[in-house]
Amino acid sequence: MRLASVSKVYGDPANAVTALHDVSVQLDRGSFTAVMGPSGSGKSTFLHCAAGLDRPTSGAVTLGDTDLSGLGEKALTKIRRERVGFIFQSYNLLPSLTVEQNITLPLRLAGRPADHAWLSRVVADVGLSDRLAYRPSQLSGGQQQRVAIARALITRPDAIFADEPTGALDSRTGQQVLRLLREIVHAGGQTVLMVTHDPVVASFAQRVLFLADGRLAGALDEPSPETIAERMTHLGEW
């Protein structure tokens, strides 16, 4: 995945707000990248543009060999449904559906049958093989997030986008979920992009990108939480 000179401006010219300014970054296949920055730094806009949820004002976003910037809304919807997975802080599970039905929902929406061998593997990977008939209300927060991860994986996406995926979890459960995400990157070759405000969470990623005032403000590879926190304290001087 690649973002090339991506800018995003909101509002009319008289009241324009530049959320992203000329951001270029390459995210290799099978990589786990975290994005950090102060409030208002452009993290969410970065994630939304990269995932095809929002169109950049200028620049290009490429997923594999597909330039998302030139696609119409129908084609973008198809890309998001089939080649992209999403994990959110709030899980977004449907309470009336079982775990299995929640996981396979993207396939049903796309009119595709479930590959039962793949479903079994994904469910085993996230540790839910004995919970398929349960409803979300019968699960812990960590288990519900595992359902959301399995749902993101079921279409065999090229990339997974995670927005504060452990924000609603206690630290121990959150770390279990993050270790699971990292294992999935290694085993399945997905590209994972995660937005977080927590240095400990970010340290589970292989690389951390820093944004400040809508601009890329540096990167760290395999950093410790302490190194990330130190870099964050200096972003205010950017």
Rank of each mutant, 00 (worst) to 15 (best):
W118L: 07
G141D: 12
S171A: 08
S129A: 15
L93R: 00
H197S: 09
L180W: 02
L220D: 09
P106R: 15
S90M: 11
E230S: 10
M232C: 06
I149A: 15
R156Q: 15
T155F: 08
L139D: 09
T104W: 01
R112I: 06
A117G: 10
A219C: 13
A117Q: 14
S44D: 07
S140Q: 15
E183D: 15
I154G: 07
G236R: 01
V61H: 01
I160V: 13
G59M: 08
K74M: 09
G70L: 14
G127T: 03
N102V: 08
D130L: 13
S140F: 13
W118N: 05
V192D: 05
D22F: 10
T33E: 10
E226M: 09
L169A: 07
S44N: 02
S137I: 09
G64M: 13
L128K: 09
G167V: 06
T45G: 05
G174T: 02
G37W: 01
F32L: 07
E226R: 11
Y91L: 05
E73L: 15
I160F: 11
P199H: 02
Q138A: 13
A133V: 07
A114K: 08
L128P: 01
K43W: 04
T45D: 08
A114E: 14
S69I: 01
F161S: 08
F86D: 01
G236M: 07
L193H: 15
E237R: 03
E222C: 05
L3Q: 04
A16M: 06
T227L: 03
G174Y: 00
V192T: 09
A150I: 07
L169C: 06
A168S: 15
A212C: 00
R83A: 11
F88L: 04
P223S: 07
R55M: 12
D22N: 15
M194A: 02
Y134K: 00
L20H: 09
Q145G: 10
V6H: 11
I160A: 04
F161E: 03
A110C: 12
K43A: 07
D22H: 07
P199V: 03
K8H: 04
K8G: 02
A50V: 15
V25L: 13
Q206H: 03
L3F: 06
F46P: 08
S58A: 12
G52D: 13
K8Y: 05
L93N: 04
D130S: 14
Q206P: 00
P95N: 03
Y134Q: 04
L181Q: 01
V147L: 14
L180T: 04
T233L: 10
A202N: 07
G214V: 01
V200S: 02
H21A: 03
R112L: 11
L3V: 04
L107N: 12
W118C: 03
L119A: 00
T98K: 07
V35E: 08
Q145E: 14
A133H: 08
M194R: 09
G167F: 05
Q145W: 13
Q206Y: 03
T104K: 08
M232H: 05
F86S: 01
D115E: 13
S44W: 03
E230C: 08
D125M: 14
D130P: 00
G30L: 13
L105W: 06
L68G: 06
S44G: 06
R55V: 14
S24T: 11
V61T: 05
A152R: 08
A124D: 14
V201S: 05
P165D: 06
S7Y: 06
